[in-house]
Design a protein around this nucleic acid. Sequence first.
DNA 1: TCTTTTGTATCAAACTACTGATACAAAGCT
DNA 2: AGCTTTGTATCAGTAGTTTGATACAAAAGA
Lengths: 130, 130
Amino acid sequence: MTAGITVDLSDPVPPYEQIRRQLSSLISVGLLEPGSRLPTVRSLAADLGIAAGTVARAYKELEQQGLIESRRRNGTIVVGPPQAPDGTVRADAAVISAVDGLIRTARDARVSDETLIDLLRGRLASKLDS
Amino acid sequence: MTAGITVDLSDPVPPYEQIRRQLSSLISVGLLEPGSRLPTVRSLAADLGIAAGTVARAYKELEQQGLIESRRRNGTIVVGPPQAPDGTVRADAAVISAVDGLIRTARDARVSDETLIDLLRGRLASKLDS
DNA sequence: TCTTTTGTATCAAACTACTGATACAAAGCT
DNA sequence: AGCTTTGTATCAGTAGTTTGATACAAAAGA
């Protein structure tokens, strides 16, 4: 499954950006812990059925973002989430279970996945303040 | 403000898709009620500083999606949320409150908005089955 | 009927992105 | 040292998107 990364070629969002986003969220949320090794650009590209350069671009941007780090022969490892300055432990188990609960609720209500994402985006935009 | 629509040219997501998403979420969430008139393609394009054809494409896709409808001279109006087939009244109250709860949880955990969307997208993709 | 407004369609040019291939650079392993 | 793995870089070809312009179609209003 290569960490559950997926790419939708019919999505207007370019593949390298889809990969970058998914890895970014996995790291930020703690599902990929610091020290974890990411799949090699070639193997991930092969699994996804895309070109290696596309995966390489996603990795490059993630490295510039400070989320991952490239040792040459050692592959690419997770450095850590951008936040989590001290002992906050990035305790996002609650967030993950809330997301899963939302997915269940949405599917019970026959709300499509895309609509659900749009809905979340809309609610976020209307709550700029805390 | 033209309904608060914004476009970020530095975003890898193409502008027509940014517009489509924002309008889709505004409609799905009820902030644009059925019957509302959208700005004309020319005026919205002018306000955003982009070409009319780009806005037209967003409108076209929204119409194919069933969210809006084009009267020729009357402009473009909101038809309604995609679901709500019969009397279900688009009963997404549960979904909306679940979304709001998720947002609260995420912000308590200091998870950024973009990360939250990425996380939801990742969890949806990894749950193709029910 | 004529004019105006609005959505739709088309076109070529420019730009970006993805691909597939190839080559190179770094670093661990034998 | 030599080999292998891995990330990085480059290239030409293809495809998708935006732009700016233009033209057309439909429909309301004078």
